[in-house]
Amino acid sequence: MKGTRILLSSLLVTVIAAFSSITLAQESGLSAELAQGKAIAFDRRKGNCLACHYIQGGALMGTTGPGLVAMKQRFPDRQRLITQVTDARLNNKNTIMPPFGAHGI
């Protein structure tokens, strides 16, 4: 459980920071966590977010979910973003996005 929490928090940092127009250099304080989040997001055995989402810097990306761009502007409510990743079913009950937190993925 604790492991999942850590994964999720770094994922979120990545989702929020890396996909807005902020560059890695500007976020140097966060960069270790960012790199970790990115690794999880891109890893097929972990987040595998690329299966469905466009994320800047990814390859072989799916088109099932919306592109993850300009997240800071589109998600002023950080809690909604956290919910989206921990259990997307709470934002949309018919979602096909896996419930990463709830299923401990």
């Binding site: 690329l50 299966a51 469905c52 072989l60 990306m61 799916g62 088109t63 099932t64 096909i96 896996p98 419930p99 299923h103 401990g104 993925i105």
Partner: peptide
């Protein structure tokens, strides 16, 4: 499954879209 998919999710609802490649 852990990823929580029905056959209908992939082959009906989102059929035609790309899942990875």
């Amino acid at each position: 499954g852990q990823l929580n998919f029905a056959c209908a999710d992939c082959h009906l609802k989102i059929s035609g879209s790309l899942l990875r490649a």
